[in-house]
Amino acid sequence: MGAAAAEGDVPGAAPRGETALVTGASGFLGGYVVRELRAHGYDVIASGRNAAALPAGETFVGDLDDLARVDLGRPVDVVVHCAALSSPWGRWAEFEHANVTGTARVLEFARRVGSRRLVHISSPGIYAAPRDRVGIREDAVDPRHPMNHYIRSKLEAEALLQDAVAAGPRPEIVILRPRGIIGRGDPSLVPRILRVRERFGIPLMRGGQGLIDLTAVENVALAVRLAAEVPGVHGQALNITNGDPRPFRAVLEQLLAGLGLEPRYRSVPTPVAYGVAALLEAVCGILPGHPEPPVTRYTVTTIAHSQTLDISRARDLLGYRPEVSLDQSLAGYARV
């Protein structure tokens, strides 16, 4: 269990001249994390491969293999590992290198520069199953049958870090599993939905009443900062959401209304949708270039079935309280 923060070490207070390095800082979440940490007194090094997309300020341009070898000439107190290959489709070798080997490289870097803490962004996709799961706690993981290569890679990355926790006290390691990150600048979740709407119509299973549990990107950045600051959380894995699960159809229609778009649905029985997705995966898996299927089994699972996370551990150990509501986040995306 986490200890209470000592006086002078209160979450939300500016750190004492600490340096943080954020991997994947050119990405959606990474950019928000950089801004959150800088706003609270950290000297942040933004790390990523795309120099043009990195936030202004001190940067390290390179991949995670480069990071493992680089000499920055100074200690780094906190490492936040946001970089990942995140997709429902792709080849195992690519996911393994980006998400498993990449995490090993980040751990190697953190050890070499003497970091006190490593905050790793994992995924609640590791809970995925073709059934309703409500109030999922952090220990409810079955690693035996991952639904896709991305999930397998995230499971293996977490296992690597838990081995490091067992091996020694430094760096302290905290794993966050944020669910359905949305907000201004989202390049993935909402755009995928909008493409499906435009091309085929959005598959609607079980009347769209399956509960989805989303997280405003600003709240994930807040959770990252708390995970960097709060003492007594070494080795913890923590669910992060807005704590406001809603039916898929209700959220979708609120989003589309904000964008001035009409819903386009295809009512499909869940078993049929799952079977079609499995067939599409098989076909795309043998086509030249292995193109991403229009719909995958994982996508069907997330739309058809309720999946909500219990965030009581993050509330209790980190003092996490979402600051941006789901309504604000949906409206913010529509204003982009």
Rank of each mutant, 00 (worst) to 15 (best):
S87P: 00
P88F: 04
P88C: 06
W92I: 05
A93D: 14
E94M: 09
E96C: 05
A98V: 03
A98T: 07
N99Q: 09
V100H: 05
T101M: 08
A104Y: 04
R105L: 08
L107E: 03
E108G: 02
A110E: 08
A110F: 11
R111S: 08
R111Q: 13
R111F: 13
V113R: 04
G114K: 11
S115R: 12
R116M: 11
R117N: 09
L118D: 02
L118C: 03
V119Q: 01
I121L: 15
I121K: 03
I121H: 04
S122W: 13
P124S: 12
I126A: 07
I126Y: 01
Y127T: 02
Y127S: 08
Y127Q: 07
A128R: 02
A128K: 01
A129Y: 13
A129G: 11
P130S: 11
R131T: 04
R131M: 12
D132Q: 08
D132K: 09
R133M: 12
R133P: 02
V134C: 09
G135T: 07
G135R: 05
I136R: 02
E138F: 13
D139L: 11
V141D: 06
D142M: 10
P143S: 11
P143A: 14
P146W: 13
P146I: 10
P146N: 09
M147S: 09
M147V: 15
Y150K: 04
I151D: 00
I151F: 04
I151R: 00
I151S: 00
R152C: 02
S153P: 03
L155Y: 00
E156M: 15
A157M: 04
A157S: 09
A157P: 01
E158G: 00
E158W: 03
L160R: 06
L161G: 08
Q162G: 00
Q162H: 15
A164K: 09
V165N: 06
V165A: 12
A166C: 10
G168C: 10
G168I: 06
P169A: 15
P169T: 09
R170V: 04
P171F: 11
E172A: 06
I175W: 10
L176M: 10
R177I: 06
R177A: 07
R177T: 05
G180D: 12
G180H: 14
G183C: 09
P187R: 14
S188Y: 15
L189D: 01
L189W: 14
P191H: 13
P191N: 11
R192K: 14
R192V: 05
R192I: 05
I193N: 06
I193V: 14
L194W: 06
L194H: 06
V196R: 13
V196F: 13
V196K: 13
